[in-house]
Design a protein around this nucleic acid. Sequence first.
DNA 1: CGACGTATTGACTCGGCTCAAAACCTGTGG
DNA 2: CCACAGGTTTTGAGCCGAGTCAATACGTCG
Lengths: 250, 250
Amino acid sequence: MVKSGQQLALLELLHSSELFSHLNNKALEPILRQAHRIRCEKNRFIKIYCDESQYCHIIEQGEIMLSRVTNDGDSYVIDVIDRGCIFGITTILEDSLYSQVLATTIKPTIIWRISLNIIRNLMKQEDDFTENLLHLELHTRLLQDLEIEHRTILNAPQRIACFLLVHCPAVNQSPVTVSIPYNKKLIAAKLGIRQETFSRALQIIKHATGTEVIGSKLKIKDINKLKSYVCHNCSLQYPCQHNHDGARIY
Amino acid sequence: MVKSGQQLALLELLHSSELFSHLNNKALEPILRQAHRIRCEKNRFIKIYCDESQYCHIIEQGEIMLSRVTNDGDSYVIDVIDRGCIFGITTILEDSLYSQVLATTIKPTIIWRISLNIIRNLMKQEDDFTENLLHLELHTRLLQDLEIEHRTILNAPQRIACFLLVHCPAVNQSPVTVSIPYNKKLIAAKLGIRQETFSRALQIIKHATGTEVIGSKLKIKDINKLKSYVCHNCSLQYPCQHNHDGARIY
DNA sequence: CGACGTATTGACTCGGCTCAAAACCTGTGG
DNA sequence: CCACAGGTTTTGAGCCGAGTCAATACGTCG
């Protein structure tokens, strides 16, 4: 099979993804053949999880906000995901409860749309694929459970501190500079707090742990101070590796 | 294989469980041979998820509270589970993050301890077993996601109202009487609120929807009133089947 | 430079938590 | 059958964290 540049990009993307990386090119061929590349502007909605859509998606570049819409039209943010993330796959075994998820691009974005039937074939034909999917799913659930924990027992400054630690490039050395991904309103929404509260809570962290805010960068002077500010209230083994932002599937 | 009465009870239990029900007796034989029956008093701890314990458990009778313990010794309730529920199985593919879950009996309880290796063999040898496990896991995650939603956008009275609806024997007729399972302090803990708040919130529901509290029974005069009190704030399709308390695995 | 979106600050409200006391239940032994 | 002890549930008073609404400051892109 002769591949176009776009298909090669997809192949590379699949190889870097935790779900597909263990598959060889032959197994990936049906995906390359069928997958559909979609370019989106900022602020577009991508339909997923609705009855007709028997597809999952993988992000090549850009950023997508996943949210849920309630019956009275209110909405709340589930997560913000980027390159390599897969969404729409949790309907693979049919569960109607998932109908209300909304994906919104928050940057110009390129995604690939893959038929769920092709994924289902992989489950049947490729050894370990189902197990691998289960593994990813279990990992994601764990992170969701942690989310429940944090929303229950951490206050706003602690939740933000945890977010910063997760996004820290280095876990064990300080000072270290974290560049805040996407904007503060979105981060606040993901953490389930208002932007005003976010702003104030950042001040509290600053005073409590000596972390400096410089525009969209954040300088952590003493990472251990930040850890002790939040991690004792968490159930993860201390010190946790702060890797709880690994690959999730939706 | 000649089976004892206890083993027959286990067999029946497995047949009634969503995870094992599709397996025939031959496939279940290794479980019957190896599983270990454990009787516990009230208020005992059952070690799970710790490194040495390569087991999962299924409850034959009684009630168990699952909770997590934070690094500073605080704890919070994850769920309260009973007959047929499986816990300890989410470590099947190894994920160290799960180390801090605690199971506590809240009634005299009988559980069966099953080696995870036997489950792993089922994954290898029995068609559809892995897929079935994945299915259950996806369903459980969905319910966890719903939990996050409810903790984010429902207030205390609404959370309780939803709990009552879930435990309603009949979904579409009223008046109907709900008998409150386990005690109010525990329910409050499961919902992530204090018992005092629970008590007050119950009064609010009573006034808003005309629900009567009679000891540990609760008479819902108009179930639609109760539904409209809470469900419009939820993302599930309305009217939801209030079945979101189905089999979960932990 | 002006305009629009983003971020911060201030003043106020309110839901749920805390601590403490009272009321209610349930089982036990005299 | 009653008295008492232990646990559970309710009620009260006060506090505090986060939400709300509104005004101001900051950034950045035309």
